[in-house]
Nucleic acid binder design. Sequence first.
RNA 1: UGGGUUAUGGUGUAAAGGCAGCACAACAGAUUUUGAUUCUGUUUGUCUAGGUUCGAAUCCUAGUAACCCAACCA
Length: 551
Amino acid sequence: MNEVKSHNFLEEIIEEDLKAGKYQSIVTRFPPEPNGYLHIGHATSICLNFGLTARYGGYTNLRFDDTNPVTEETEFVDSIKADIKWLGFEWKYELYASDYFATLYEYAHILINKGLAYVDDLTSEEIAQLKGTPVDPGKDSPFRDRSIDENCRLFEKMKDGEYPDGSKTLRAKIDMKHPNMLMRDPLLYRIKHAHHHRTGDAWCIYPMYDFAHGQSDSIEQITHSICTLEFIPHRELYDWLIEKLEIYPSHQYEFARRNLSYTVMSKRKLMQLVNDGYVNGWDDPRMPTISGMRRRGFTPASIRNFCERIGIAKRENIIDFSLLEFFLREDLNNTALRVMAVLDPVKLIITNYEDEKTEELTCENGPDEAYGTRQISFCKELWIEREDFMEEPAKKWFRLAPGASVRLKSAYIVRCDNFQKDENGNLETIYCTYFPETRSGLDNGTMKVKGTIHWVSVEHAIKAEVRMYDRLFKVENPSSEDGDFKDYINPDSLQILNAFIEPSLKKAAVVDRYQFLRKGYFCLDEKSTSENLVFNRTVTLKDAWAKEVKR
RNA sequence: UGGGUUAUGGUGUAAAGGCAGCACAACAGAUUUUGAUUCUGUUUGUCUAGGUUCGAAUCCUAGUAACCCAACCA
């Protein structure tokens, strides 16, 4: 097999850098702000950064971009670390932008001493006012030409807490008429008398993103600093600061963030879903957060394979959710234990089966023989799926109907002789005859049926709550529709069922993955208890019959 | 005084002047004690208009469209 490997643009840049001897090995970083939970979009960035150093040699740091004390919390630091580990990646160093506050403060002085930064007394509104617009040039602040000495003194006083929040800022002195708005004397430091999750009350001035991120990259000698497209305008400032500070020249590269159909990804929108009660928390299995997906039953491998396959580029995109589902099913199909569970039960009575008899039948555990077999109990009364019976069978119907026969998985072939409805006209009981010679394994092949259905014994089955999840939104791109994105929420994204499941599931663990035969992949919910078993549907099986019905 | 980025099937992504490929999706069939899996096959694409060239997704010219930038957020 000589597979032709295709390279994305970042891999090409790195290979050229390596070939040219610019670097011996590369260093990347994953730089989240600890102000929320990671989602599938972050996962692509994680896979990218860690994947690149795994491939080309070098390492990846985890760096928390914690320069805004009012939004950041240790809780988020912990969840981010747990999510990255769960995805299967190991960072070299755990670092914090806040570790560099003292260095950054020195860097600011370097700029001031070079006459490249000044303390501005303008208010936020005044600064915005003088900034101009993308089509109109800005105007200089009246404080722009303070002396170096005065700037030094004022900046020190800012640090010493002598001024209230918002009263002064430190700005780079670049060009108020610059076509790139980011270069119109960007803010470097602001005053915030706020408690920081790591530095406590040691500081009351905090660097802005632009005066922390590139500098942190440089301190860590990051070779390739990879971020999303919206930071392109920042690159000019990133390079300017590195040049003027005369520090290690990290380089920034940008890629297009990945969007997934039928969901939203912005932190703001996800927060609304949580706060307004559309979902039950950040780890709700419908959420595109890593914690939600984990709870839903996604596997790390499926997410990694997905990220690998979608590649990386610079154009806008909305990736089809079914692509993610494909990798999920692919992984689960290879690993999930096969069990039987009846989600919407209706009773089936085998009229010619002995009343008190129980037979132990052999059933395969997994996708191949290596998984072995287990015994399952078979009795006169069984639960089967309501949708596996049709009073007036449609064309191409393979399942139960009056007079029709099906195989009960790993058991016998039965023929439906009769059925009974309750006073509301709902199917209550199906009466069947079984054929003893068709027992699974002994079958001599004289009788053939098209359909095989799953079942559980009424006497042996246990109860469980099963949560069926569907996509959160009714439209592909909720954010681009008219009106509020919440108007497009799928009201049926969660359906709770009371199911009968086979008794072997009593010992299910959260890490186990199951296929409920013919119904989909399921896992035990993190909050399930032995008194109240709860299973989550991770993803359905592909369903050719459902497609047939749609026509 | 505006600047920047991007355009390849329904979706995502390759092709560095030389056969438009791969995956998903869709469709058709075979196998199947899961209408699953597996296997086989099919359909669908280079933003537009010119130009250069034996040959253009790729180079040139002119358009068009989408996205990003005016937080003391990151």
